[in-house]
Design a protein around this nucleic acid. Sequence first.
DNA 1: ATTTTCAAT
Length: 215
Amino acid sequence: MNTKLDSVLLPRKKFIYHYKNMRWAKGRHETYLCFVIKRRVGPDTLTFDFGHLRNRNGCHVELLFLRYVGALCPGLLGYGGPGEKRLSYSITWFCSWSPCANCSTRLSQFLSRLPNLRLRIFVSRLYFCDMEDSREREGLRMLKNIGVQITNYKERIDIFLIYLGSTLGRLSHPKIFKAWGELHQNSVRLSRKLKRILQPLETEDLRDAFKLLGL
DNA sequence: ATTTTCAAT
C-alpha cells in the first residue's frame, strides 16, 4: 500500500478545525477527505480500510482519491478479462468541503462505469453553493442522479464519530470527541439547504406556481 | 446586515 495513504491519521485539532460545519468557515483553504472502504471479498466476508487525504499540488482531494483508487481498491477496476469477477466496494467519504463542479463531473464519469462501486459522501460544508444556479449545485445533483448518496454528516453522526474515535484511538488520544456547540444547529441548516439543492423544482411545481400566479 | 470557499503571498 502506498505509504502516503497509509498515513498518519488526522490529528484531532486539525480534524475539528477543518470539519467544523459552520456557515462562514474562514481560512479553510484546504480540503480533507476521510474515507472508509468496505470491500466484499466473499459472500460472507468483508474487509475494511480507512484513512484520509488532503488536496495537494492544485489537485482537489476527490481527484486525488481517484488517482489512488486502484491501489486502495484492488479488484475494483478489473482488466476486462473474459468472465472476470470484479469485487464490490462501498466507499464512504467524509469531506470537509463538498465537491466542486469539475470534481462532481469527473466523479460521475468515473462512477458511471463502475456498478460494483457504491459511494456515499458526507460533507461538512457546501462549497460555492450559495447561488441558485451555481455549477457546484448542478454537480451535486449530477452525483445524486448517478446514485451517489450525498448528505451532511449529522444524519449519520454515529458513523462519523466511530470513524473519529478510531482515528483518535490510533493516535493514542484517549480524549472523547466533544462536538462543538453549534454542530446540531449548523447541520440542520445544512440539511435543509442540501435538500433544496438536491430536489430542485419539478416542472409540476412550476406549473402549480404559474397557475397560482394566473400566468 | 454581513461574513467564506481544494490560495496566494
